[in-house]
């Protein structure tokens, strides 16, 4: 039985990794044909690299979520 705390952390982790993958493969990396075309010197979406970094950060924030998730029926 996975606790609600673990679910939340997993959700955050997945969201972070998904953002990383999407921003790296789809938004930032200019792939296409011909590969040296000048359109590919730009990210598909401006600030995609920022999204990637935010993705990395969200993924690691999962740990904080896991620890700080309020305790059900706890003392506080």
């Amino acid at each position: 039985m996975i606790s609600r705390r673990a679910w939340a952390a997993l959700l955050v982790l997945t969201a972070g990794i998904a953002l990383m993958v999407v921003s790296y493969l789809v938004l930032a990396a200019p792939w296409g044909f011909p590969p040296e075309s000048e359109k590919f010197s730009n990210p598909r979406l401006a600030f995609a690299p920022l999204l990637f970094i935010i993705g990395v950060m969200i993924a690691f924030l999962a740990a904080v979520v896991y620890e700080l998730w309020p305790q059900r029926g706890g003392k506080e």
């Binding site: 990396a29 401006a46 970094i53 950060m57």
Partner: peptide, 20 residues
């Protein structure tokens, strides 16, 4: 933040090292 390209080794240095 705006234009960094994954093809450049600096991308890894910048995102992985300095931010991640």
């Amino acid at each position: 933040f705006r234009y960094a390209r994954p093809q450049s080794p600096f991308f890894g240095t910048f995102t992985m090292v300095i931010a991640g």
